[in-house]
Amino acid sequence: MVNILQLFVENREFIFLIIVSIFLGIEVISNVPAVLHTPLMSGANAIHGVVIIGSIIIMLEAHPTNYLALILGFFAVVLGTLNVVGGFVVTNRMLEMFKKKEK
């Protein structure tokens, strides 16, 4: 219990940010027409690829001889990049079709 309270007090700014972001997320997509559900999901999928930053931090902080961390970190970077790059490219491909149509 003490631990949880401590975590809360130490990170209150972040917890505030989390709560505001939750409402922002809801607000931002609440008016999405059904037409855009798939691209939106795909775009959101690319955005959570931001987890790649965590893998880069691991690599930067790893001791140059800590090979376990380096190897795992390398895989994490590859996985994160797949998520980011693949996600944005797939979304862009879907949305290209919408664009063509407007001519």
Partner: peptide, 22 residues
């Protein structure tokens, strides 16, 4: 949250809440 990294936090939470609503 672990790294105190705002970009990861906002990106993740936005997708988390928007994805849940969807």
């Amino acid at each position: 949250f672990l790294y105190g990294n705002q970009a990861m936090l906002t990106g993740g939470i936005l997708v988390g809440s928007a994805g849940t609503i969807l």
